[in-house]
Computed example of a mutant assay.
Amino acid sequence: MFEIDRVAREKALKKYVIPECLHVPIAARDETTISTHVGRIVTRLSGRTPFKAFLVAREVEVRPDRDLPIWDNPASAILHQPHQVWVHVRYSAYRAAYKRAFPGDQIDGLVLSHAMNRRLAIMRGFEFVRITPASRASNSSSAMSENWGIDVQARGSRDAMLRQDAQRIEYADLTSLLLMMDIKIGGGTMEVVNEAQSHIRPR
């Protein structure tokens, strides 16, 4: 039975300031966590490698808050996509796995982006990460935010690490939400930050 990760929920609400209708799982501790907090594992997409890839059915009804401009963008449909591909952080054949899951999707010229940087996921103890198609420009634009996150994690206190142990999944922050929607993020200037925030600022 699906359960909400209360620790992850509070983090998304208070730290990321992300409205609840945009709480999108992007990382999970392990396979059991996917089944408990993300959705039903429909099939295994990987071969005999110990590092697995799954097609996951996200059977959770989410009612978009139409006061948020982000829902006006057709690309927002990917956020709560009913079927998703989740891969182990050390699984390398994720492009082939995605094609097995969605053989009709045209992804030539696109990269398959890990919704959480794999190095950061490893540092934080998450084994599985969701992947979505993105343009190279959008994927590259997230590098600054990802590097900042890795640096912050590396300097994190032991107390913070212990609190983190109670968290089984990670919900997307604003940067991850926009990357999944293939929106170029950029970074480093207040203008860029304000532009990003405008997507989730009520009208």
Rank of each mutant, 00 (worst) to 15 (best):
S176V: 04
E170I: 08
I131C: 01
K52W: 00
N194C: 02
E191S: 15
D165G: 01
E31R: 15
V7S: 11
V24D: 05
A96P: 06
L68M: 05
Q164A: 11
P103W: 03
E61P: 02
G47T: 04
V193M: 11
L120A: 13
I70A: 05
R163K: 14
E59T: 08
E170A: 14
R201H: 10
L178H: 04
D182S: 02
T33E: 03
L177A: 01
A77N: 08
V60E: 13
G104N: 15
P202K: 06
I200S: 01
L110C: 09
P103E: 10
A137Y: 03
A101D: 10
S145W: 12
F51C: 10
H88S: 15
P103M: 05
G188I: 05
T33C: 13
G125S: 10
D173F: 01
D5Q: 12
H88A: 13
P25Q: 01
D105C: 06
Q153R: 00
A101L: 05
N117S: 07
S76V: 04
A166P: 00
A8K: 03
Y91C: 05
F54K: 04
T32E: 14
V38T: 06
S92T: 10
R90A: 10
D182M: 05
T132E: 10
P25H: 02
S157V: 01
M1W: 04
Q153Y: 01
A97E: 12
I183Y: 15
F51V: 06
D159C: 05
Q153H: 01
I18A: 06
L162S: 11
M123S: 11
L22H: 02
T49H: 04
F126H: 12
R203P: 00
R155S: 07
L120Y: 08
E61S: 13
R118Q: 15
M180L: 04
A196C: 09
I122Y: 00
R168K: 15
A196F: 00
A93I: 01
I26H: 04
E31N: 03
I34L: 14
F102D: 06
V87M: 11
L110F: 14
T49R: 09
T43F: 00
L120N: 12
A134C: 12
Q106N: 13
I169P: 11
D159S: 13
G186C: 03
M1L: 09
R158I: 10
R163Q: 14
N139V: 02
